[in-house]
Amino acid sequence: MNDNFLEPQPLGVPCPQCQKELQLKKGRFGLFVGCSGYPDCDYMTSADFDPGTDVTCPDCGSGKLVQKTSRYGHSFYACDRYPSCRFSVPLPPVAEACPKCAYPVLLRKKTTAGERLICGNSDCDYKSAIR
């Protein structure tokens, strides 16, 4: 990529709607892929640099948890089957079961003392030792 990252970067891939070239662009919510023919063509999709985690959604059981950005710029992890599944967590998920309640997802929490795993179930108070 070029030094000036605010400029659209050509991707060499044709737009599925108008066949013009797709570009990697930076918007107020982060990176996205858009058509170079904008405003005539309004095709837009997310930039999949972090396609997600290998953690299966504990609510629906079929989706994967992917990193997303809120409208305020904060990262969170949500099911990729949204809107049919609305599961989300504020911390990076780990595909390990909780030893206390057997909830299938632990969350990686960084503190000033170090990093620890906490249970993704709000009713459980499990916290691992500081690593």
Rank of each mutant, 00 (worst) to 15 (best):
D3W: 11
F5L: 15
E7A: 15
E7P: 00
E7C: 03
E7W: 01
P8H: 12
Q9C: 05
P10T: 14
L11N: 12
G12R: 12
P14G: 12
C15Q: 05
C15A: 10
Q17D: 14
Q17L: 08
Q17M: 03
C18F: 06
C18V: 02
K20T: 11
K20R: 14
L22T: 09
Q23G: 00
Q23A: 08
K25D: 01
K25S: 08
K25V: 09
K26V: 08
G27T: 03
F29P: 06
F29T: 10
F29G: 08
G30L: 01
G30F: 04
V33H: 07
V33N: 07
V33S: 03
G34V: 00
S36I: 01
G37F: 05
G37M: 06
G37Q: 07
P39F: 13
P39N: 15
M44A: 15
M44S: 15
T45M: 14
A47S: 12
F49A: 13
D50V: 07
D50K: 09
P51W: 03
P51N: 08
P51I: 03
G52F: 03
T53D: 05
T53E: 06
T53S: 13
D54M: 01
V55S: 06
T56R: 11
T56I: 14
C57G: 04
P58Y: 05
D59G: 04
D59Y: 07
G61I: 01
S62Y: 06
G63P: 07
K64F: 12
L65G: 13
L65Q: 13
L65C: 13
L65I: 13
V66F: 09
K68G: 02
S70Q: 05
S70D: 05
R71A: 12
R71T: 09
R71I: 05
G73I: 09
S75G: 02
F76I: 02
F76D: 07
Y77C: 02
Y77F: 15
A78E: 03
C79F: 09
C79Q: 10
R81F: 13
R81E: 14
Y82N: 12
P83W: 04
P83D: 10
S84I: 07
C85R: 06
C85D: 07
V89K: 03
P90D: 12
P90N: 12
L91P: 02
L91I: 00
P93Y: 09
P93A: 09
A95D: 11
E96H: 02
E96G: 00
A97D: 04
C98F: 03
C98P: 01
C98R: 04
C98D: 02
P99T: 06
P99L: 08
A102K: 15
P104F: 06
P104E: 02
L106E: 00
L106M: 13
L107F: 08
K109S: 10
T111Q: 08
T112Q: 10
R116F: 05
R116V: 01
L117D: 05
I118N: 06
C119R: 10
C119P: 09
N121D: 14
N121G: 04
D123I: 00
C124M: 08
D125K: 14
D125N: 12
Y126K: 09
Y126D: 04
K127V: 09
K127W: 01
K127H: 09
A129R: 14
I130R: 12
R131V: 02
